[in-house]
Amino acid sequence: MKRRLRQRSAGVATIEFSIVFVVAVLMMQFCWWAGRAYWQRTVLEGAVRDAARLIASTPPGELTTYGNFTTVVADANALVAEAAQRSGIDFLGLDILCDGSVLCTSSVGLRVIRLEAEALLPETVFPAFGGDGIPVTLSVEVPYDGRFAFQ
Rank of each mutant, 00 (worst) to 15 (best):
S139D: 07
R36F: 03
F126T: 06
L97S: 15
A149L: 09
T105V: 11
W39E: 08
A149P: 00
S87Q: 08
E116R: 15
L44C: 05
L97K: 09
M28S: 06
I15P: 01
V23N: 10
V43N: 14
Y144I: 09
V25W: 08
P122R: 06
L115N: 05
R86H: 12
A37H: 06
A51Y: 00
D99F: 02
A10V: 11
V140H: 11
C104F: 04
I55R: 01
F30T: 14
A84H: 01
S139L: 10
F148V: 14
A52S: 10
P135F: 05
G100V: 00
T137P: 06
G61C: 07
I113P: 11
M27G: 05
F150V: 07
V142L: 10
L115M: 13
N68Y: 04
D50K: 13
E82A: 12
A51K: 00
R49N: 13
V23I: 15
C31G: 13
T58F: 04
V140I: 15
S101R: 14
M28K: 03
Y66V: 15
I134S: 08
Q29S: 15
N77V: 05
L54H: 08
I113L: 13
S57F: 02
L138F: 03
V20L: 15
F148R: 07
Q7V: 12
E118T: 05
V20G: 13
T64G: 02
R111G: 03
A84G: 01
I113M: 15
L97T: 14
E62H: 03
S139H: 11
F17P: 02
R147N: 13
L54M: 11
P122N: 06
D50M: 09
R86M: 10
V20D: 03
N68T: 02
T137V: 08
G130H: 08
A117V: 00
E16L: 12
C104R: 00
G130E: 04
P60E: 03
A78M: 06
I134C: 06
G46T: 08
F21K: 03
Y38M: 03
V25G: 05
I15G: 07
